[in-house]
Amino acid sequence: MELGPYLLFASLEGLVHAAVLSLIALGLSLVFGVMRIVNVAHGEFFMLGAIITWWVSSFVSGNPAIGFLLALLVVPIIVGMTAVLSDWLILRHLKYDPEATIIATIGILYIIQQFALMTFGPDAKPVEQPFNIRLDLYWFGFSAYKFFVIFSAIILLLAIWLVMSKTKFGLILRATQLDSETAQAFGIPISRVYNIVFGLGAAIAAVGAILIVPIQQAHYLMGGEPLLLAFIVVIIGGLGSLKGTVAAAILIGMSDGIISVFFSPNIAKILATLLVVVVLIIKPNGLFGTTKT
């Protein structure tokens, strides 16, 4: 293959990465934006989404699309409820103190990860693509499913944007994000909002997982890498900004995809992290707003 088509291929792969990454990062950013906490277990909610997708689809024989649709229906709810439960059982009692919360979410990370290992074992689990069509792009064939992933992510991002900007629920979230004390004074039930947002953040990551798992396979250790990338995205894109998050996710996802194809996945991550260092040096306060502990 010549360089041009090869680059196109790498960019398409990168776009698939970027699509899923923007969903994961958006979930992280939503939780941080509204609740002012960093959820280190976010990657594990993603992993849980992928593994449960495999589990759900293993019940369905015949057309893999049925299993996929079933997963889309059930998995975000299961993962979301897991997150809601961990907020209700744990984080709530820590009063969302930044330090304690970060330590507790590390605890949750290990528990979910090791639970997955105990229950589903250490092997990588393949999930069949819901439809197996290859598009002939003249130089190379490209799976139509990957286009579907990109497309679905765009639809979902638009939907989230609409909810955030046009609905009453979105207004409540924005009010809480701006000033939780005042919001509470105006009768917004803060603890319920937090509970829902934590679940929602995890559910969005789970949707990302459902989309990627037919391409990538599910494994109990798959949560670490997207967490790192989501942190990078959120730092570069700025918090609470949907546009910034998506733009940074495209930048990081694309370059990660392209560099991974041409060089090595590790080099891609090292470079992306170094980019964060540069951002740090240029605008130290840009990170996660100007929150203090």
């Binding site: 960093v38 930044p98 970060i102 990078i232 730092i235 590790n266 090292i270 992290t273 929150t291």
Partner: peptide, 21 residues
Amino acid sequence: RTIGVSFMIVTLMFSQIAYLS
């Protein structure tokens, strides 16, 4: 150059660079 939560995340990321390297 960072404080609070950012400091925690940034140290995590530096350590990750070392691991990947």
